[in-house]
Nucleic acid binder design. Structure first.
Lengths: 210, 210
DNA sequence: CGCGAAACGGAGTGGTCGCTCCGCTTTCTG
DNA sequence: CAGAAAGCGGAGCGACCACTCCGTTTCGCG
């Protein structure tokens, strides 16, 4: 983390790039062409690529705050006395962010991220694992649900958001409602297949998109 | 439906194209480059485009049988005495086809299809609508579920299939199990958002992918 | 068999994208 | 205030895609 004292114009341009990218990624997703980002920032392509070796590095940098907020949400959820409320509240809050930020959804749904995205996942994982266990001990969450099933919720809700957010911005809440009714302990009937292993999850990560 | 008596080589090449496309679409999805299809069929690009004005027309022609099979499945489901069994059985059977045929999943999830895909949808729709009503009258399916919620099931299950089919070909069944447990009448708690209108569904159709 | 029409094939077009290269400009130091 | 170093910009590259165009080949009728 050396900060090699950027020249003033360099620092200004870097900030403009991050600001433009943040805006465009949130509104249109991470697939906006880099050329559009540089045009919006009023700089050239060369400037972008001197600051960020690849587009993915830019994505990772831009979404740093959003990742931090998700970590904070997970910490709050983990602290809830009512573990079911913490669990459902986390899903609602996290998905609200997904719906408001297409770029965040793209990165989380596809696990495309770089270091920062991975770091966030690793901070969140144990918090949610504990939360799931507690919700099961409290008799609220079905006992056959595992932490490895959680990505399923985000992948599928992400699809609903992609499909409906443009004209029914809250529709994913209906989907989440249906799904959560299936996650309650009282609703559980035997499942026909085991959860994914962690190795399989890692493969799934690589499989999304590119 | 005029059949203008194709020359023998033309007919043979057309069949080869359809056979190659069927194989490649099923295995790799509709995004296989057309050049790969023509190479596999042993013909030139020109030959493909004389028979099918666009790639989408080829897709539509290739999947005709798969569409017909889905219609048949819906008819069988609609005839079931136990409407819940018919409903869940249809979902299982239809998703089994999705999992076995990436191209079918691509077209159905994204409503990309041409005439034949649309025709299939219009034949299936009233059958499933009746089935849903009957399952609700029999007290099995939650009463706030509507026919307009069904695409949600296919969109989301499609995502699970995309993500996991390569290494856990049955994992979508676990997802479907969780979701179905939320669709039973006993599991229902109030939903926070109304179903999509048909106009919104039409917009969602256009929104997927391209 | 011969000839016109039908069909063929594949290089080429135009579009998109992430990314690079290098001649030019700006900043900052002594 | 001058010169070196740091930074800049954007045309161009290469990869990929669906699709077209036209000189060549094949078919099948008379």
């Amino acid at each position: 983390m050396t900060t090699p004292t950027l020249r003033s114009d360099a620092r200004r341009n870097r900030e403009r790039l991050v600001a433009s990218a943040r805006e465009l990624f949130a509104a249109e997703g991470v697939d906006v062409p880099v050329e559009e980002i540089t045009r919006h920032a009023g700089v050239g392509m060369g400037t972008l690529y001197r600051h960020f070796p690849t587009k993915e590095d830019l994505v990772d940098a831009v979404l740093e705050d959003a990742f931090a907020e998700l970590v904070r949400l997970a910490e709050e959820a983990a602290a809830a006395d009512d573990a079911w409320a913490g669990f459902t509240g986390f899903l609602e809050q996290a998905l609200t962010r997904h719906a408001a930020n297409r770029g965040l959804k793209d990165v989380l749904a596809s696990e495309h991220g770089r270091q920062r995205a991975q770091a966030m996942r690793e901070r969140i994982r144990p918090l949610l694992r504990r939360l799931i266990e507690r919700a099961q001990e409290q008799g609220a969450l079905r006992p056959d649900f595992t932490a490895e099933d959680l990505p399923l919720v985000f992948w599928t809700a992400g699809r609903v958001i992609e499909t409906t957010a443009a004209f029914a911005p809250d529709h994913w809440r209906r989907y989440l409602g249906l799904l959560l009714d299936g996650l309650r302990a009282e609703a559980a009937s035997p499942l026909p297949a085991p959860p994914l292993t962690q190795a399989q999850l890692a493969r799934a990560a690589r499989r999304q998109h590119g």
